[in-house]
Amino acid sequence: MTVVVDLEEFGEAFREDPHPVYAQLRARGPIHRVRLPKQDDSREMWLVVGHEQARAALADPRLAKDGGKIGLTAMDEELIGKHLLVSDPPQHTRLRSLITRAFTARRVATMRQRIQQIADELLDTMLPHGRADLIESFAYPLPITVICELLGVPEMDRGEFRQISTDVVTPADPTIKHDSFLRLSGYLDDLIEAKRSAGPGTDLLSELIRTTTEEGDRLSPDELRGMAYVLLLAGHETTVNLITNAVHTLLTHPEQLAALRADMTLLDGTVEEALRYEGPVETSTYRFAAESLEIAGVPIAKGEWVLVGLAAADRDADRFPAPDRFDIRRDARGHIAFGHGIHYCLGAPLARLEAQVALRALLERAPGLALDGPPREWLPGVLLRGVRRLPVLW
């Protein structure tokens, strides 16, 4: 008889720090049957916690992202449209090839100067006050400004978009999620139509509207909405947590912070170790067994749900010795904070760039940076890893 681990029973302690629970599970095996917390609908599914097994699961074509293969339609797919996170090849291949024609590494590289300018402007406003909520003053407005400028979202809309995105990804009240998706769908439709009417623009969304392959293929209206949804939400929610978690981790590991301040060539490694140690995404989005399979000898029946624990896998001692030690000199390559395989995060280069610029600017301009009390309200659910507020002073 399969034992079901009820994650809700670990209470608030699991929400604040899930790593001890994941360590207990890893000690018993790389995959477990779990019941998710109430915030995640108390659904039962398989949870992969071992690094080797998680990496393999992320690349296994038998684990589908398209719930339609087992007769399911996700809320975001129903209300927003088909997008990268709920599609498999060949549809996923087609969608990804169309977005990568416009969202190139070259485009990201050209954004460094503007990201630096935004960071400096935010610090100009924040630093004279002596203390602040890091998220409200810096970690949120930086990536939301970057992604909105990249996609061409009007500045006057960004406050409204923030509330909608919060209610979609980490709602304080799960009952508002459906209505939030409807609001977001309507907003994106209006945004896309405004760009069509305005004519050729240089922002990414305008380019996606007119991107066409040599064979004449292009994104449909529903696919454009889905692409804008993924880019806007994934393009800022995760980066907020990456910046915040990295700062919080550095401030709670003063010897590592001192080492970084003394040698800023360690910055890139610091970002990678922060991604491994306390990444912004705790678990992958759901996968579904399109056929029967085994993971680490455990039979998974066709139609069952599988969740890959990114945070759990990146603290697996079989892959990273002394995994609970934060060490900015560690070779953290091989972590799966951005996923693995064909669904590897499209925005990973931009997220890394924003984190590097943000950390350097903050540490150089606020040499006395310290926590001003504990972080407040860890995000609900098991999808994202972060807090709603991080009080700091300098």
Score class of each variant (00 low, 15 high):
residue 2 T to H: 07
residue 4 V to Q: 04
residue 10 F to Q: 01
residue 12 E to W: 00
residue 13 A to S: 12
residue 13 A to K: 05
residue 15 R to N: 05
residue 15 R to S: 04
residue 19 H to C: 01
residue 25 L to I: 00
residue 26 R to G: 08
residue 33 R to T: 05
residue 35 R to V: 10
residue 36 L to C: 08
residue 40 D to G: 08
residue 47 L to Q: 02
residue 51 H to G: 00
residue 57 A to T: 03
residue 57 A to V: 06
residue 62 R to C: 06
residue 63 L to W: 05
residue 66 D to W: 10
residue 67 G to L: 08
residue 70 I to R: 14
residue 78 E to H: 14
residue 80 I to G: 03
residue 82 K to S: 12
residue 92 H to W: 02
residue 94 R to F: 04
residue 97 S to K: 13
residue 102 A to F: 00
residue 106 R to T: 11
residue 106 R to S: 11
residue 110 T to W: 01
residue 112 R to V: 02
residue 114 R to M: 06
residue 115 I to R: 03
residue 119 A to G: 05
residue 125 T to E: 15
residue 129 H to P: 00
residue 140 Y to K: 14
residue 149 E to N: 12
residue 163 Q to M: 04
residue 170 T to K: 06
residue 175 T to P: 01
residue 176 I to E: 08
residue 182 L to P: 01
residue 192 I to W: 03
residue 204 L to S: 11
residue 204 L to Q: 07
residue 206 S to M: 05
residue 209 I to W: 06
residue 214 E to Q: 14
residue 235 G to V: 09
residue 245 N to A: 08
residue 254 P to K: 03
residue 258 A to I: 02
residue 261 R to D: 09
residue 264 M to W: 13
residue 268 D to I: 10
residue 269 G to D: 13
residue 278 E to D: 15
residue 279 G to Q: 00
residue 281 V to K: 07
residue 286 Y to N: 12
residue 292 S to G: 15
residue 327 D to C: 09
residue 328 I to D: 08
residue 329 R to H: 13
residue 338 F to A: 04
residue 338 F to T: 02
residue 344 Y to F: 14
residue 350 L to Y: 12
residue 365 R to F: 05
residue 368 G to P: 10
residue 376 R to A: 06
residue 377 E to A: 12
residue 381 G to W: 14
residue 383 L to K: 07
residue 389 R to Q: 13
